[in-house]
Amino acid sequence: MNGVFLLLALALCLLALAFVLIPLLREPRDAMGPSRREGVLAVHRDRLAELDQDLAAGSLTKERHARALADLERELLDSGVLETGPDTGGERRGTRRLVQVAALASMALLPFLAVGTYLSVGYSDEVFAARAPAGQTLPAQPQAEPSDEEMTREFTRLVEGLQVRLAQNPEDLQSWVLLGRTLTYLDEFEAAGRAFGEALRHGGDRDPEVLVRYADVLAELEGGLAGEPAALIEQALAIDPDHPQGLWLAGTLAYQQEAVDEARAYWGRLLAILPAESPEAEVIRGNLAELTLR
């Protein structure tokens, strides 16, 4: 009986390994074409904009915003969208060969190791020792909210991963942008400014989102929107006159310079493109109402 059982167990192990390992042995197809990559990046930018709007409107705390940002950036890194360097294909093929060798070795050795373990250890009644009594379920362990230190470590790991990626492919615009955003939320504004500066040198000067982000970081470093931040905002709005963050910053700059008519024009355009019932629209309506009193 034991011999028949072991043969059946060996056959089931091989069958299970086949389902897992055969896909690893196949050559992958390039599923991330240019159009799909652009689509994924567009969705990522939209989700980032929504998070920023919620933070600005006060409907999202800074801690929750930071956690959501970390999740989005990790998803983007894991998606493979940023792996566009010329050498990554060869590296992936070399890595895949190692995986295939390991897969074949696992397929050959694991069933015999399992049988050997069964023969040496055998069946143990202790398996049932930790089970809950009949009719009861083990209580679920509550998931604690990550602390500020844990979030900082998460963002630091993201920064390190992006730096490694950029060392291999310094032409990667999206990685520079992602690095700049991550450093911004770590309050490392000087490093964030350098990252956004590199992004501009690698094509970001044609992207209003990158221009506006860079302007925001420079404003933190220089203590205001006047000067180079203002020029970047103007450049962003020349590309996209209805860019929400660009309109917001342009209106804020005009307000700081007591150019009431300009501030009213920028914020009025912003209000027209925001959803009427959104918290952001409510904030803009309050700002416009304050302008009428001046």
Rank of each mutant, 00 (worst) to 15 (best):
N2C: 00
N2H: 04
G3A: 12
V4D: 14
L8I: 06
L10Q: 11
A16V: 13
A16F: 14
A16E: 12
A18S: 13
F19V: 09
V20R: 11
V20M: 09
L21E: 12
G33Q: 09
A42I: 01
R45S: 08
R45V: 03
L51G: 08
L55G: 04
L60F: 07
E73M: 15
E73F: 15
E83Y: 15
T84M: 13
D87H: 15
E91Q: 15
E91N: 15
R92S: 11
R96F: 10
L98K: 15
V101F: 09
L110D: 05
L110A: 15
P111W: 06
P111D: 07
L119P: 09
Y123Q: 13
Y123H: 13
E126V: 11
E126T: 15
V127K: 11
A134E: 14
G135F: 04
P139W: 08
P142E: 13
S147P: 08
E149W: 05
E149L: 10
E150A: 15
R153H: 07
T156M: 04
L162R: 06
R165C: 00
L166Y: 00
L166D: 00
E171R: 08
E171F: 02
D172G: 02
D172H: 04
D172Q: 09
Q174T: 06
V177H: 05
L178T: 10
L178K: 01
L183Y: 05
F189V: 03
F196A: 03
F196L: 07
R201M: 07
R206H: 09
Y214E: 06
A215G: 11
V217A: 00
E220F: 03
G224S: 05
G227S: 02
E234F: 00
E234L: 01
E234S: 08
I239Y: 00
Q245G: 03
Q245S: 08
L249F: 12
G251M: 07
T252K: 08
A263C: 06
Y266F: 05
W267Q: 04
W267G: 05
A272L: 07
A276T: 12
S278I: 05
P279T: 01
P279W: 02
A281T: 02
V283Y: 01
I284D: 05
E290M: 08
E290I: 06
